[in-house]
């Protein structure tokens, strides 16, 4: 084929633009064909609606999540009432509305899960990119520190911190974000080291492109896949961790409706009111399972070879 190909010269330049299907578009199409991922997305949307509409449910039922309703919620023997028209999922041992509390609990779970993951992703990507791209002794020290951080269990660090500064939502988010950050930074750093030496980064570097431009325009788009997969798996981990801390009484204020705290409250009463255990347990399990399934689906969609 010669360079003055007559066919192209004859072709009018304003012909219809041919749009290629990008890797994201293809991944989205694959994800949409994945039944488990679609169902998971539906579950996540429902949980998000539950959280968003929590005040609405409080309004409809007329039950505040923190208020006790001993007259209507407890039987004459002092036991919580079961599910019904007034208390949709029943009441807890103190006479509070379980459904309304679970809806408000969804807010805590999603708040912690999403904000910790977002923080971890932003910082992890920035630090991982810089360390991986520039290398050198800073990178060596950082890699070592991340190894050490990741070798300590979340819970041990959380316990010590709670003992030192007291439990709070902010502390919970900080601990989760810190550990997730380490995992994220390690992955991004490793990937960046790989891309730094690729020919397409050399191509722009030989043109005199700035390191910032190379990191943002040339390396970052290639990291979206692994970062998305890791982030989508960090969300359920964070949710479980928040619930665990609250269950142990180390997370949010014990009166705050959080799924972990609700489950902790149920332990003395589920023999008489199994709903207290079953409803929050199922909700928590469904949420984390949905996020995990979606994460797996995203990974398969982005990397169909696996």
């Amino acid at each position: 084929m010669s360079l003055t190909d007559a066919a192209f010269e004859a072709e009018p330049v304003h012909a219809e633009v041919v749009h290629g299907k990008g890797p994201w578009q293809l991944a989205w199409e694959r994800l949409r064909r994945d039944k488990a991922a679609v169902i998971s997305m539906a579950v996540i949307v429902l949980v998000a609606l539950l959280a968003l509409l929590a005040p609405l449910f409080a309004l409809i039922t007329g039950h505040d999540p923190l208020t006790q309703y001993p007259e209507t919620a407890l039987t004459p023997e002092g036991l919580p009432v079961g599910p019904g028209a007034d208390f949709w999922l029943g009441a807890d041992s103190l006479g509070r509305d379980l459904f309304v509390r679970l809806a408000y609990g969804a807010r805590i779970s999603l708040l912690v899960g999403l904000s910790a993951t977002l923080l971890a992703t932003v910082f992890g990507v920035v630090v991982g990119l810089l360390a991986g791209y520039y290398g050198g002794w800073v990178d060596g020290v950082l890699a070592r520190v991340l190894d050490v951080v990741l070798s300590f269990p979340y819970l041990l660090v959380a316990i010590v911190l709670v003992a030192a500064v007291g439990a709070s939502v902010a502390l919970t988010i900080f601990v989760i974000a810190f550990f997730s950050f380490a995992a994220m930074a390690r992955v991004v750093r490793g990937q960046t080291i790989g891309y730094r030496e690729r020919e397409f980064t050399e191509a722009v570097r030989s043109l005199g492109a700035s390191p910032l431009r190379i990191m943002v325009i040339d390396v970052l788009p290639n990291l979206v896949a692994p970062v998305t997969v890791l982030a989508s798996l960090l969300i359920p981990t964070s949710i479980v961790f928040e619930a665990t801390l609250s269950f142990l009484g180390l997370g949010v204020d014990p009166r705050t409706p959080s799924w972990g705290a609700i489950l902790a409250d149920s332990t003395d009463f589920y023999r008489v009111a199994p709903g207290l255990l079953v409803f929050p347990a199922v909700l928590l399990l469904l949420t984390t399972l949905a996020f995990n399934l979606l994460g797996d689906g995203i990974r398969d969609a982005l990397d169909p070879k696996r």
Partner: peptide, 22 residues
Amino acid sequence: VLAGISLPTFVLGILMIYLALS
């Protein structure tokens, strides 16, 4: 495996106690 990873330890624990006792 996915169910096991999604299942918080404490939820599994109290479910087991519930089953064993009730």
